[in-house]
Amino acid sequence: MTEKRIHKLRANAFFDLLRENSNEIITLSFDCEKNLVLPKVPDQSAYYSRQLYMYNFTIVQGSSKSKLTKDNVFSYYWTEEKFGKGSNEIAFAVFDRLNKIDFGKNDEQKILRLVADGCSGQNKNSTLIGMCSKWLVTAPLNVASIELVFPVTGHSFLPPDRVFGQIERKLRKREVIAMPSEYVEIFSESATTVELGQECRVFDWKTAVQEVLKPPGSWGFKFKECKRYFLKRVRSGNVVIRGEVNYKNDLGTFVGITKKGKTTRLIDPDEISSGNHQVKPLKLRDVATLLAKHFGEGWRALQDLSYCANVIPEQIENIETEEESHNVPDTTCEFIPELPAILV
């Protein structure tokens, strides 16, 4: 009972930070919506078939009490064959948003607060922290520090989830969705849409950060247990970090996280071209089979399925799985002599 009470108190402390509305604090909360399938069809076989994915990463500027409008809700979208869905994609979407925020006059001190769930593969990792460190070095001088806040497990309802709820209600009214533009049309009703690789440049933050920052295990505090991270600039042009395991107590100390002889300014990611993410051929074959079942063998000639026709090669139907290629009946026979009855 005591552990449960402490768990709830920590959850309330997290939401207190998310509700905080101050002129000195600029809050960004972000999250990924569940994978949206292409094609979306009312077919039972679609439940058992692999499908192509449309990704929607939403950023909301403002506290949890702020009204959701297209001016403070931003939807970054991309399809599976263009980019993956990991820490690198999250980092460059947040980086693009940070560069477009108006932080006001130089005499107005600001604290940037980033709030996200604790998914280590996307949000809570050195890639995102390294990107924030690089941005802070070149950020407006009135940005005093960056605070990254992560919720306790089971209490991660964020403002982007409200946006996802609006999108889901509209998606339920559409039985068939075969083009990414149909999803974008729905996104645009609730947010300002940005296509990754087209309307914003994409960088390889993950590789660049690993070359400059130490591994999180050598940062001087328990990285996984921390719920808050504070970043601030120092005179040398570098960035130091402090980790806190609680939401209200500040007990940690700032430490440097760059490798010997390197500074945060040296983080210089290379640009990534769109369409470099490889989709597994077997997955493409399953999607082609699903399209043939639902729309017929001539599905490639349909204008509404032009996206799938461009992504899926025509020869994909002939690809065999490894199990299928080895599933050849053995026709060789081997003579086994009859054993004596006493041995049997």
Rank of each mutant, 00 (worst) to 15 (best):
K4A: 10
I6C: 14
L9Y: 09
R10W: 00
E24F: 01
L28I: 12
N35S: 04
L38S: 04
S45C: 15
Q51P: 03
L52S: 08
F57L: 15
T58E: 02
I59R: 15
Q61D: 01
G62Q: 11
S63P: 03
S63L: 03
S64Y: 02
K67Q: 15
D71Q: 11
Y77I: 11
T79P: 07
K82L: 10
F83Q: 06
K85V: 01
E89W: 01
I90Y: 01
F92K: 09
F92T: 13
F95G: 05
L98K: 13
G104V: 00
K105G: 00
N106F: 05
Q109N: 09
Q109E: 12
R113W: 06
S120D: 09
S120Y: 01
G121L: 02
N123W: 03
I129T: 08
K134C: 00
W135L: 09
V137C: 12
P140A: 03
P140N: 04
F150T: 14
P151Q: 07
G154Y: 04
S156A: 05
L158W: 03
P159D: 11
I167C: 11
I167K: 14
E168C: 07
K170D: 12
L171C: 02
R172K: 15
E175D: 10
V176T: 09
I177M: 06
V184I: 15
R201N: 11
W205S: 08
W205V: 09
K206L: 06
K206Q: 13
T207L: 09
A208L: 09
A208N: 07
K214G: 08
P215L: 04
K222D: 13
F223G: 12
R228K: 11
N238V: 06
R242Y: 07
R242A: 08
K248H: 13
K248R: 14
K248L: 15
L251I: 10
G252Y: 02
T263G: 15
T264I: 14
R265E: 08
E271F: 01
E271P: 04
S274P: 03
K280R: 07
L284Y: 07
V287L: 10
L291M: 02
K293F: 12
H294C: 03
G298H: 05
E320R: 13
S325F: 08
H326I: 06
T331R: 12
F335I: 05
I336K: 10
I342S: 13
L343W: 14
L343P: 11
V344G: 05
